[in-house]
Design a protein around this nucleic acid. Structure first.
Lengths: 181, 181
DNA sequence: ATTATCTATAGATCTATAGATAATGC
DNA sequence: ATTATCTATAGATCTATAGATAATGC
């Protein structure tokens, strides 16, 4: 097993732990146990816990691999709902913890904005320097992920997926189409 | 100084620390220093760190003391924006951490939903058992607070307060008025 | 020979408690 | 006398490192 592979094993073990328990709630030993190696090796290969966090924490949302005919507002919402249904990792739900729990929250916040806002601006085709609509869309996606994942108030019992995509997608699309912003 | 008062001093010191740094990121000593007492006294008066967290963490949003003529969607949004402008404590921004960082996240999540959803249902006048619209409104407020506070992507430079209240208030009001939900 | 990994442990926390002292009310 | 508060410290972590051993490639 080369270093590359072991390092990847450790990062893969670290990611969900950091996401679920945060920086302080996750120990090097937790990660080592999950990866099946000694804590010393985790330290050796990652340098420090803070560096490991930086390396492990995903810092941008998953790409949309298949730009369909659907309007981008609905498409973005559908992706979040489908990830809930399949239990996949949800960047938008983890982002608040990644900022708040980072060893240096201010830097984490700035980095996050830098990566995420232009990305969404590209998806919705916004070209203004302020990227106001992209910022609003990011806000809406953060809320949706909170409701679906962190708080689980938008359960399938409370609202079925199709209806949710229709209603919430309409909100996102309304922002995208808003000429006043 | 009676116990009541010292206990309150400690809780007031603990609240912002827990909110900013989370449960694991805040130590009894931090709280003791902020309150100007010894760590031993903090322990004595609070029982344990977990109990202190329970006692200190606000578990519901601030009430709306002045129900105006304004439509509830705009009113709810305006309150969040104004708290940003005045730098006041924002329940909706802290709620994710309170759930995630709680000693028992599952219980914290259930409690949160139990308190918050009926509250918002009352504000918007929803009486269905599922409270689907209240859940959607909570989701939108969580997003707004994330965008304003946690990520600071909705800065006054990016969008001025009046415009934000108008645009985001319209979304919340759209959900409140949505007959399909 | 070099790289990968482990054991053992130092040094620095952290929560919690025991027991002492200072302040308060009768 | 009782309540409020402190000092001192036990016991349990946690990160990080030093030095030893096992595995690998030449």
């Amino acid at each position: 097993m080369s270093e590359r592979t072991t390092r990847e094993t450790i990062l893969d073990a670290a990611r969900p732990l950091f996401a679920e328990r945060g920086f302080n709630g996750t120990t090097i030993r937790d990660i080592a146990d999950a990866a099946g190696v000694s804590p010393a090796l985790v330290m050796k290969l990652s340098g420090s816990k803070a560096e490991l966090f930086q390396a492990a924490a995903p810092d941008s949302p998953g790409l949309d691999p298949d730009p369909s005919e659907e309007l981008p507002g609905y498409r973005l919402v559908r992706a979040v709902v489908e990830r809930r249904n399949s239990g996949d990792y949800e960047f938008w739900a983890m982002a608040p913890y990644l900022v708040q729990e980072a060893p240096e929250p201010e830097i984490a916040r700035a980095k996050m904005t830098e990566r995420v806002v232009p990305r969404i601006a590209a998806v919705i085709g916004e070209q203004t320097p302020e990227k106001t609509r992209a910022r609003m869309v990011v806000t809406l996606l953060l809320g949706l992920a909170s409701g679906l994942r962190t708080f689980e108030i938008l359960t399938p019992q409370a609202i079925d997926s199709a209806k949710l995509i229709e209603a919430y997608g309409a909100l996102v699309q309304k922002i995208i189409d808003d000429d006043g912003l």
